[in-house]
Simulated scan of single mutants.
Amino acid sequence: MTDLVVANIGLVVAYDTATDDPHTDEIHAFWYGHITELLSEARPDDDAERLARLLLGTLGGDLVLHLIQSGQAARLKAAIRQLVDSVLRC
């Protein structure tokens, strides 16, 4: 997912700008559902829905755009990987 965002940051920004509420669109719903399902399998005793929303939220916002545009995509990917790994290890 992070690779997809990094490779298509221009489209991501344009889509977020053009969408009234990106959290209610079909693309967001697909990824949210997919991540929720994976988390439910990996961590059945946790609140997969909340964790999915929090993890998906890390791929949006000004910091992500800044890191990608300033040539720090590898740093972004590493940080998100660490975050996901820490959620899955608990």
Results as ranks from 00 to 15, higher is better:
75 R>C: 03
37 E>P: 00
70 S>P: 00
85 D>V: 09
48 A>S: 14
47 D>C: 00
73 A>K: 07
70 S>F: 05
3 D>P: 15
24 T>K: 12
78 A>M: 03
81 R>Q: 11
57 G>T: 02
24 T>P: 03
45 D>K: 14
78 A>Y: 07
20 D>W: 07
51 L>P: 12
7 A>T: 02
25 D>E: 15
51 L>F: 09
39 L>Y: 15
66 H>E: 10
7 A>R: 15
57 G>S: 06
84 V>H: 15
80 I>C: 06
37 E>H: 07
52 A>C: 06
55 L>T: 00
38 L>M: 02
65 L>A: 10
80 I>W: 14
86 S>A: 11
41 E>C: 00
21 D>F: 11
53 R>G: 14
40 S>V: 02
81 R>D: 13
24 T>S: 11
73 A>W: 06
89 R>K: 14
53 R>K: 14
7 A>I: 06
27 I>R: 13
7 A>C: 05
33 G>M: 02
17 T>D: 04
31 W>C: 05
51 L>M: 13
10 G>E: 09
66 H>D: 12
58 T>I: 01
40 S>T: 13
74 A>C: 01
79 A>Y: 03
13 V>I: 13
76 L>M: 04
65 L>K: 06
25 D>P: 08
24 T>R: 11
2 T>R: 04
86 S>H: 08
41 E>T: 03
36 T>D: 04
14 A>E: 12
86 S>N: 10
72 Q>S: 10
60 G>A: 08
36 T>V: 00
29 A>S: 13
32 Y>N: 06
85 D>T: 10
75 R>P: 00
69 Q>R: 15
82 Q>S: 09
